[in-house]
C-alpha cells in the first residue's frame, strides 16, 4: 500500500520535532534558561535568530527545548489515557451487562464536561505544574479510548477466534491481551495520534492560563502567556511559540488522517 502524501508530510514534520526535542542541547544555540538582562526583548539578530524575551533568554532555544515539554506531555498523557481507557473499555465490552452499564455511565458523566473544562477544574484544585497537567489530562482523556475499545470488543468477541480461544481454556485476561488487543491496536493508534495533538493544545491552553508549566519551564503555552504582556513591543514572543504548536498539531493531524485512511482502505 502506497503511503499517502498527508501521512508522509505529517510523519516528516513530526520526526523533525521529535529530533529537535531529543537533540535540543545540540541544536539550540543557548540553554533554555540562560539570561542576558542587558539584551531583553530584542528582535532577531545573528546572535539570536528569533530574538530574546523579557529576561534576555534566546527565543529559538526556548522554542527548541519547548518541543521536549509539549511532546513529553502529549505522549505521556495519551499513554496514561490509553492504559485506563483500554482496560475500562475491555471490561465493559467483554463482560457486558451490569459492568458495561456502570462503566459507560461513568464515561457519560465525564463526557458531560466539555473538553478542557474538567482539566482546568483539576489543575485549579491540584495547583499549577506540568505533573498535575499530565495527571489531569490523563484522568479525563480516557473516555474516548474506552468507548472505542468497548465498541471494537463488543463486535470482536462474537468472532470465532475469540470463542475458540475461550473454549481452549484461555482466561478473560489472556483472551483480551493475546487476541483482542492486537485487533484493537490500529484503531487505537489512529485515535492516539489525534489525542496527542489535542493534549498538546490542552497543555498549551493550561500553561497559557497560568495553570500549567511554571517559570522558567520553556513550555510553548507559558511562553505565549509571558509574551502577552509585551504584545505591543515584542510581538515575536507571541509569534514563534504559537507557530511551533501549530506545526506540531498540524503534523499530528496529517499523520492521523493518513493513518485513518490507510486503516479504512485496509478494512474494505
Amino acid at each position: 500500500m502506497k503511503t499517502s502524501p498527508a501521512l508522509a508530510l505529517g510523519a516528516l514534520l513530526l520526526a523533525a520535532f521529535v529530533c529537535a526535542a531529543a537533540f535540543a542541547p545540540a541544536i539550540a544555540p543557548y540553554t533554555a534558561t540562560q539570561q542576558s538582562l542587558d539584551n531583553d526583548l530584542a528582535g532577531s539578530s545573528r546572535a539570536h535568530w528569533l530574538g530574546t524575551d523579557k529576561l534576555g533568554r534566546d527565543v529559538l532555544s526556548r522554542v527548541v527545548y519547548g518541543a521536549r515539554i509539549s511532546l513529553a506531555v502529549g505522549f505521556t498523557t495519551v499513554a496514561l489515557s490509553i492504559v485506563i481507557g483500554f482496560w475500562i473499555g475491555a471490561l465493559a465490552g467483554y463482560f457486558r451487562g451490569g459492568v458495561d452499564q456502570a462503566l459507560m455511565r461513568l464515561v457519560d458523566i465525564l463526557m458531560a464536561f466539555p473538553g478542557i473544562l474538567l482539566a482546568i477544574a483539576f489543575t485549579a484544585v491540584l495547583g499549577p505544574g506540568l505533573d498535575h497537567v499530565v495527571v489531569a489530562l490523563g484522568l479525563i482523556g480516557w473516555t474516548g479510548y474506552a468507548r472505542l475499545v468497548r465498541g471494537e470488543i463488543l463486535s470482536l468477541r462474537e468472532k470465532e477466534f475469540v470463542h475458540a480461544a475461550a473454549a481452549l481454556g484461555g482466561s478473560p485476561l489472556r483472551v483480551v491481551v493475546r487476541h483482542l488487543l492486537p485487533n484493537v491496536l490500529p484503531a487505537l493508534l489512529v485515535q492516539a495520534t489525534f489525542g496527542v495533538a489535542a493534549a498538546i493544545i490542552a497543555e498549551g491552553s493550561l500553561s497559557f492560563l497560568g495553570l500549567g508549566a511554571e517559570p522558567p519551564t520553556p513550555s510553548w503555552g507559558a511562553m505565549l502567556n509571558e509574551g502577552r504582556q509585551f504584545i505591543l513591543v515584542a510581538p515575536h514572543l507571541t509569534a514563534y511559540p504559537g507557530l511551533a504548536i501549530t506545526i506540531t498539531v498540524l503534523a499530528l493531524n496529517l499523520a492521523g488522517d493518513g493513518l485513518r485512511d490507510r486503516l479504512e482502505k485496509r478494512g474494505k
Binding site: 497559557f208 504584545i231 507571541t238 509569534a239 504559537g242 501549530t246 498539531v249 498540524l250 493531524n253
Partner: peptide, 17 residues
C-alpha cells in the same frame, strides 16, 4: 487543516496584533 491546528490562544493574540 490549519483552522484545526491553530490554537485559539495563539490566533487571538495574532488577530489582536
Amino acid at each position: 487543516l490549519f483552522g484545526l491546528a491553530v490554537p485559539n490562544f495563539w490566533l487571538g493574540p495574532l488577530l489582536m496584533i
